[in-house]
Design a protein around this nucleic acid. Structure first.
Lengths: 182, 182
DNA sequence: ACCTGAACACCGTTCAAGT
DNA sequence: ACCTGAACACCGTTCAAGT
């Protein structure tokens, strides 16, 4: 396999999902990729930078366009579900992404999009910002609860329950948000 | 200073708040405590067990009794604020606590108390459980957003903003929860 | 110019020797 | 019985030597 930045990141993603972040070591990556340990530093400046790249890679999906919904509530819901879906596709990597500072750019963009939707719905600036933050907290917290906070732990084994829990809480928040607009 | 399990844990808490979890190493703890590296293993079986102990120690405060409020809404609010307050007293350690599996017992007890309050308020079992989970997700997510998810990062420098954000979101959820009971 | 082996300064934990 | 120095098997990263 041809070594490249992409393949190094992909190998790291694989290791994280299989054994957690703590299992990602430069020696292990090298043997996994069948290359010399030092060669890795040609594609990634450090282990930390590699984890940043994993976070960015794994969350890049939420930048994708979503089918616009007839009303702003469904639009917002779709955006929030998309965040969660992308995160759940790589749960342990998602916890890594969420733990990096600064947050991956795609996550910041998603937050900005939610804010824009709230503004367009008619919320004033302070309310729109605070609602967006509350939603972000809820999504993050749900992921934390589900996937196991420690990035080195596996996901829950009752995903259907987690989905229902998530939708229930999302309903709660959206109900209050809608009521607040009137 | 007399070495004991307590002093070892306290030293770890200090290091974590100052420099993050990653800075907690057995050698550093030893020099900080002025003892031999190996002596630490007489009080703590491993670094991992030490971090578990830090999580338990730091979160033990939420087990404290709270003044009962006239209505269940204020009761629930007080419980949730207490969780957040305790966590914010040691923000970086709180992130460690939240990241441990299983969660510290005091956190589980706090969740159980919230559940009991919801039951007493008149919610049926599935609703009570889901509301409690939504609230937990919100508190966890807020901490993650504020303190910086990575346990190795410092807290925000606008705590007042964070407080207002938190109360705003809590209001939203509590409003919807109250509406759902009727 | 690119690649990488050997080396450095760290880790957590164990073993076996000391008291 | 208790304590702990030396040692082991790891890390991430750098330097300087090779091609």
């Amino acid at each position: 396999m041809q070594l490249s930045r992409k393949t190094v990141i992909a190998a790291a993603v694989e290791i994280i999902e299989a054994d957690g972040v703590e299992a990602v070591s430069m020696p292990r990556l090298a043997t996994e990729l069948g290359c010399g340990l030092i060669s890795l530093y040609n594609y990634v400046p450090s282990r930390n930078a590699l984890l940043d790249a994993v976070g960015a890679e794994v969350m890049s999906g939420i930048a994708g366009t979503l089918a616009p919904q007839p009303n702003w509530q469904d639009d917002l819901r779709a955006q929030i579900r998309a965040c969660r879906q992308v995160a759940r596709a790589h749960p342990r990597c998602a916890m890594v992404a969420v733990s990096r500072r600064p947050a991956p750019a795609s996550m910041a963009r998603a937050a900005e999009r939610a804010l824009a939707t709230l503004r367009k719905a008619g919320f004033g600036e302070p309310d729109a910002v605070r609602i967006a933050r509350a939603l972000a907290a809820y999504v993050l917290g749900s992921l934390l609860r589900e996937a196991g906070a420690r990035p080195g732990q596996a996901a829950d084994d009752h995903p259907a329950d987690a989905d229902r829990d998530f939708e229930y809480g999302l309903d709660l928040i959206m109900q209050a948000v809608t009521a607040r607009l009137k």
